[in-house]
């Protein structure tokens, strides 16, 4: 996994994390309009960041939820536990 791919994936992780946090918050505060607004914003950013990533590196999601190109890229390495996130 090259540096550019990692950078895109890290951006997705950040957005995914913010969306997860807001999701949990909204589970107990479903009427919080400010949180809902921020969730919708993050969710949209997340979707477009994923689409951008998948266009280049293949699907992030299985079972038809990711974007699939002309070849079956799902089986491509590396899998999440194989990525070396260390800078050096």
């Amino acid at each position: 996994m090259n540096a550019q791919q990692k950078e895109m994936l890290l951006r997705i992780m950040e957005l995914q994390f913010a969306a997860t946090e807001l999701n949990l918050y909204l589970d107990t505060h479903p009427d919080d309009m400010r949180a809902l607004q921020e969730f919708r914003m993050r969710s949209q950013e997340l979707m477009s960041a994923k689409m951008e990533y998948e266009r280049v590196y293949g699907p992030l999601l299985n079972f038809g939820l990711g974007m699939t190109g002309r070849t079956w890229q799902w089986i491509q390495d590396p899998w999440p536990w194989e990525v070396n996130w260390r800078r050096s």
Partner: peptide
């Protein structure tokens, strides 16, 4: 976003 992921919470 970056601080949230690094700390482990958005709040």
């Amino acid at each position: 976003l970056r601080d949230a992921l690094r700390t482990g919470t958005l709040f």
